[in-house]
Design a binder for these strands. Structure first.
Lengths: 360, 360
DNA sequence: ATGAAAGCGCTAACAG
DNA sequence: CTGTTAGCGCTTTCAT
């Protein structure tokens, strides 16, 4: 039952809107005149691009202050033929996973005085292409792309145009550019290893219906762990999940109906894990005592739903930061780090059962 | 227990990075030469700003196509003295509430060919001010600001600079600009009314520790509903919550310890509601049969945690869209709508108990 | 209906 | 150490 209720508010008519009246900012010439120097000097003071005597510098600084001067980034970009703008093409910041990545990107960009243009691809390749044009028009210095589908056309175009590009979160082997991803293979491996070490011998797995590199690698890790510990890799234990909680629940029932049923499940992401959790509860299984579940991604929903749920945590914020830094290095010509690359760690988060979880 | 595990990946050294080599885009002059027309004609074809004969238009269009021409937004902005860029100052897209608002903003902006610069204030007034300067430098056409604290300095500066500004989600009565917010008062009112109609007579309330307008209004709505239905407004039933789940849980215990205890709770947001839910469960209360809880915001965590949790839902996406549209109207001089404003609805979402919730 | 040309505000030679 | 000046790519008068 959903009853429609309430309403809105905008007290806009109470004001005299003065927008645009005063919108003019002092130019470099204004500053130069006030400081009684040439515009070149002002420019060089701002950019520290050639020595300026203390006297003049002080005059310039004072004038800038007095006029509340703010350099015009457009003029600067036009002249310099490069901007301090990054494009971020992301499926949807509404997804908490991407939201955290985006945050990391914006953080790192801000630290290096870059601003980021937010482009929601909305999981649409077409939209991605539209945004490629936008970013080209804005002369973005580089682009960070989080693929939404298997389609890499946007990235290919970017590379074709010679725009610095870094791919995040997923592989796109066909695109000639660096990518930053966590080691999903080992994530899957260690998740499974964890279950094995808990004593489980028959471990089910919820895979993604269509394979994007990162989720497939998780499954490969799962299989590798089984092999390494001498357990059979039984295809029947690998269920094709979906994208919604309900899919996870559904396929978990399928797995539990097997004879013999698995005693544990590794899910390719946390949504599936939560679905599995529900299914297990409905079957009267006590998690994690009777039945163990390990998820992947460590999204807040998982922690909320089951504080004791074990999951593989990706350093999403850090991934974003790394991606942005790598991109900025590429732009600056500092080039990608050839070695000494610090690991992008993936953690297995085994939360203690507090006994306070609502599902107890 | 948390064991550190895995690692990173960047196949960057496999490629010859060609970035920046080819980065040149055709200019309007290139197009003009190829089409054998003047640059003025090209410009007018692009902007449809004066009639151009079909013949020339076709030639221009063909040349643009052939050269893969993309107008330089910087040059255009410089010349036109205005950009198609919006600034979005937001506390943190990592918060699912803000993420959805951001998404709405970006959507509406995209539809009107504006791009948005993402600025995380990180709940810091100082950071907000830094971003004001960035946006001024970028000559953003306007700014949408979601306040992070009670501090309105950033907004005041923006208004002072004459930059079009719209405030979202909260009131800032001192700032002379329009704002778009849901009617939090009535949200609180109807939430409480709902509980009263369920038969509750002693209804507790979890309020925000420091008052931002929106949460305070929710509480006022709660009090008004009690009054209207002839119930006493007892200050002792209003507990000061916090920002974390645990705070909600803690103060719920306080409320439950009252004699007599309330039989229901209205929480100023969903996080507090979830905390209350946990506390209730720990006390052995069956929600919603023994004890009813209504939250506010309708964040995904709430739905995950308790599919049957009742909450007041704000149209976050729509709020973002409205805010962006309002801002764009202001920028275009279309002005704010004087009347006929369509309500920004807030819904009371009463979810059916499915019997499948993990906490059952 | 079309073109020539003057800047927008800034940076970076170049000249002193 | 400082100033003059020629553009960056585009829009927009002002002529034709």
């Amino acid at each position: 039952m959903t009853s429609l209720l309430i309403l809105w508010y905008t007290p806009v008519n109470d004001y005299v809107i003065v927008y645009g009246r005063r919108g003019t900012i002092a130019t470099i010439r204004d500053v130069a005149e006030r400081a009684e120097v040439s515009v070149a000097t002002v420019s060089h003071v701002i950019n520290e691009t050639r020595p300026v005597s203390d006297e003049l510098r002080l005059r310039v600084l004072a004038a800038m202050q007095a006029l509340d001067y703010q350099p015009n980034a457009l003029a600067r970009g036009l002249r310099r033929r490069r901007t301090s703008t990054l494009g971020l093409i992301i499926p949807d910041t509404n997804n908490p996973y991407f939201a955290e990545v985006a945050r990391g990107i914006e953080q790192a960009a801000f630290e290096r005085d870059y601003s980021v243009i937010l482009c929601h691809s909305d999981y649409s390749p077409e939209r991605e292409l539209q945004y490629v044009d936008v970013l080209r028009a804005e002369r973005a210095a580089g682009v960070i792309w989080i693929p939404a589908t298997e389609c890499c056309e946007a990235a290919e175009r970017l590379v074709e145009y010679g725009m610095p590009l870094v791919i995040l979160d997923r592989h796109a082997p066909d695109v000639q550019c660096p990518s930053v991803v966590a080691d999903n293979f080992r994530g899957g491996y260690f998740a499974t290893q964890h279950l094995i070490q808990l004593g489980h011998r028959r471990i089910g797995c919820i895979a993604r219906p269509v394979g994007l590199s990162h989720s497939q690698e998780r499954i490969l890790g799962y299989q590798a762990a089984l092999s390494d510990y001498g357990l059979p890799v039984d295809e029947i234990l690998i269920a094709k999940g979906g994208f919604r909680l309900e899919d996870g629940r559904r396929v978990t029932f399928q797995l539990l109906d097997l004879v013999p049923p698995p005693t544990a499940i590794f899910a390719y992401n946390d949504i599936m894990a939560i679905g599995a959790l529900r299914a297990a509860h409905e079957r009267g299984l006590c998690v994690p005592d009777d039945f163990s579940i390990v998820g992947f991604d460590d999204i807040p929903q998982a922690a909320f739903t089951c504080p004791a749920l074990t999951t593989v945590s990706q350093p999403k914020l850090d991934m974003g930061r790394r991606g942005a830094k790598l991109l900025l290095d590429l732009i600056d010509g500092t080039g990608p780090p050839v070695e000494g690359d610090v690991p992008l760690e993936v953690r297995l988060v085994v939360r203690e059962s507090t006994g306070q979880a609502p599902q107890q």
